[in-house]
Design a binder for these strands. Structure first.
Lengths: 250, 250
DNA sequence: GCTAGTGCACTGGTCGGACCAGTAGGCTAC
DNA sequence: GTAGCCTACTGGTCCGACCAGTGCACTAGC
């Protein structure tokens, strides 16, 4: 034994090195949203690689939602503000490939939405309460005109609560999962009987949740929000999965 | 008015069309993990595009974690089983560029971990209880030998609980966020005074949680798990953020 | 006979050059 | 002064080439 200890080497593709460097610059703030990257032809000079390699790196960065390029733009690729688009994409893939069930998705939302309400009840500002109020008013106004407007107002309410929770991670994850759930069952909801009744019930539930948030009663708000979501989605969840959702209710 | 209603057109890059087609095949199960894609030169013939275009598409698919290619492989790119790697990547990016605070991350974990315990208390099998038991034993055995082994056993416990919850989304998200949190504060934990005491306390807490899960008392298990995580991380969380974490405890 | 070694045919990674459609901004002609 | 064109770029796509790595069939040696 003895002798120098060698470490296994990992061959690193050229485009990966480029991705790493630009990613690093974005994450450390050297490159901020709005900044433009040099043109591909400049980048190939700076990195001493061919344009193909530069482009593969840009494709990866684009897939991760960090930059965007537009043909003909005299400036180079644009550094984007972070959006959960990439998160959304990978979670959607997860849902499809890994066969996430509606029950799992709804259970996840119930959990995070309840936490958001719990936190919002303590941290909400008056302005945020006004936003929630406005969202419920919009729900009321939209109840007659159709499901789309109603759903949009509903989303606005939950988003206001999530923002008031002060936890961006909760906000983004609820947003992502909500859109996946809505995509999954949009047509089922549209075909549901007694839509008016469902909407009226949903509005009443939201009012109760808001009252609890306004009163600062976090645990109550959390419990009510879980119940609201359960009632709203349970009919679309296969029976065997409902037990797990009910377990979340207490 | 009148006349045909035209829709705005979106120019779609060639490589995006390829990505869509292959992605579709993977998500619908036409291509399952282990399957090999045709070689790049075959793909350029099938899609009637150049190899550069094929390669850009493959780069995107690879960035999304759907395929992997290896130089020299006589078969083409390999379709991968879904891993949360892409999810992990985008969430890490989110944490860095959006400046997610440790408090937000810990709060998120407390919420999901508690939900996992709540569900696991009802749904756990004997085998899963045995796994949790083994993990705690490993924690006990590792308590003297160092932080790394202890942390690994701790992770194993939480993962066993998450799996027992029957909610893959919770499982994956807790896993991703946990690794981000551990990366953030690994050095701080290693430098903490009285590590032995912290480990012993942590083991005791985990035993209590497991007892509640075994007894089927979900709410108790949830409450204890929240408290355990709070106690374990609170010293690393800046004081202003602690109030939000405490709000999650009740 | 079987095994160990050697080519070969293929792979993906990279390069360089080329063309096209699009864009922005300066320039020209009115 | 303004409307329109022109030009110099951009990114998207294509082509052809070379290289280093891989797996497999084939061959030389036991």
């Amino acid at each position: 034994m003895g002798g120098p200890r060698f470490e296994p080497v990992r061959t690193v593709r050229a485009y990966e090195r480029i991705v790493e460097q630009i990613e690093e610059a974005v994450e450390t703030g050297t490159l901020t949203p709005g900044h433009r990257l040099p043109s591909e032809r400049d980048l190939m000079a700076q990195f001493s690689v061919s344009r193909s390699t530069v482009r593969e790196a840009l494709r990866v960065l684009q897939a991760r939602g960090l930059v965007r390029s537009r043909p003909g733009d005299p400036n180079g690729a644009e550094v984007l503000p972070f959006t959960p688009a990439a998160l959304h994409k990978s979670m959607t893939t997860l849902a499809r490939v890994d066969q996430l069930s509606l029950g799992e998705l709804v259970g996840f939302r119930m959990t995070l939405d309840a936490a958001a309400n719990l936190l919002a009840a303590r941290l909400r500002t008056e302005a945020q309460l006004a936003e929630m109020d406005a969202a419920i008013s919009a729900m009321r106004a939209a109840a007659g005109t159709g499901y789309d407007a109603f759903s949009a107002a509903d989303v606005a309410f939950h988003d206001a609560v999530a923002r008031a929770s002060g936890n961006k991670l909760i906000q983004i994850c609820t947003d992502v999962v909500r859109s996946i759930v809505l995509n999954l069952i949009a047509e089922k909801i549209a075909a549901a009987p007694d839509q008016d009744g469902l909407m009226r019930q949903s509005i009443r539930h939201h009012e109760e949740v808001l009252a609890a948030v306004r009163a600062g009663d976090g645990p109550l708000a959390a419990r009510l929000s879980r119940q609201t979501m359960y009632d709203y989605y349970v009919t679309y969840v296969p029976a065997p999965e409902r037990a797990a959702l009910r377990a979340l209710l207490d």
